[in-house]
């Protein structure tokens, strides 16, 4: 038996919003420690790693490890049926062909159940080594979203250049060039608004706007985003999910032809 309950279904809705543009289907690995998803987009340019710890759920039971292949589009449709104040419970048997989503209204007067067929998936699992990065930048997620959206108008990719002074984002295209520089914030009174730059070595990397604009869909999950960068390796773009876990996006850089 697998059962996981979250009082705030809104968290799960936001998680689905954060992956539905990148992934068509994904395997949810459920164990005693929680739920994990690792999946690449169809073009194998980016990778999503989602971790929801069992202790972050209001109720969690997983008698044996389960790998459940799910259609992200279908799951997203189901979660759109949850009221914003509803509680959500995920339930599956030990050898499941289906997973059930149960939504309960706060006054318990409405109970909705949606059963979704699981899918068999051949999945590739990638080993992601623990890495120490040359630059780690933390900034407001709204600001990062804004920068990605604004610069996407000027080119297909954005160059991230991080130095002691701060981080510079730039894009260029047929119409000209756009640059946005962010300096580390001086006072850290408001943690949510802070920009922090931890630099060991300067980095300069170029990334596709298309993928960055998918990652920023996770913005509503967390006030801050963390960007981890080293030259010539994938960007890690991480959003915390409350006290329950995190979503990490890995994006392969573009290289000079």
């Amino acid at each position: 038996m697998f059962e996981a309950r979250l009082v705030q279904s809104a968290i799960l809705k936001k998680v689905l919003d954060a992956i539905k543009d990148l992934l068509t289907e994904a395997t949810f690995e459920c164990s005693d420690s929680g739920i994990q998803v690792q999946a690449m987009d169809n073009a194998h340019v980016s990778l999503v790693s989602l971790n929801l710890r069992s202790d972050g759920f209001d109720k969690y039971r997983c008698d044996r490890n389960l790998s459940m292949g799910m259609s992200i589009a279908c799951m997203s449709k189901i979660l759109r049926c949850a009221g914003s104040e509803d509680t959500v419970t995920l339930r599956a048997l030990d050898n499941p062909e289906n997973i059930v989503f149960i939504f309960e209204s706060p006054n318990k007067e409405k109970l909705a159940e949606y059963e979704m067929k699981l899918i068999n998936m051949d999945q590739e699992h990638l080993g992601i080594p623990e890495t120490s990065y040359s630059c780690i930048v933390k900034m407001p997620s709204q600001e990062f979203s804004r920068i990605c959206r604004d610069l996407s108008q000027f080119g297909e990719s954005i160059t991230f250049a991080c130095s002691k002074e701060g981080i510079k984002f730039s894009a260029s295209g047929d119409y000209g060039q756009a640059t946005i520089k962010l300096a580390q914030t001086a006072d850290a009174d408001n943690e949510e608004e802070a920009v922090s730059v931890n630099m060991q070595e300067p980095v300069k990397l170029t990334f596709s706007c298309r993928y960055l604009n998918c990652f920023i869909k996770a913005g509503p999950l967390c006030a801050q985003v963390q960007l981890s960068m080293s030259n010539d390796v994938p960007l890690v773009c991480e959003y915390k999910i409350g006290d329950i876990g995190h979503i990490r996006y890995y994006l392969a850089p573009k290289i000079d032809d």
Binding site: S46, L47, E124, H125, G127, Y250, L251, K254, D256, D257
Partner: peptide, 14 residues
């Protein structure tokens, strides 16, 4: 011009 690398070229299959 930039060429897009694949994410799988950075990580090993397990």
């Amino acid at each position: 011009n930039h060429a897009q690398k694949k994410i799988s070229s950075f990580f090993s299959n397990i």
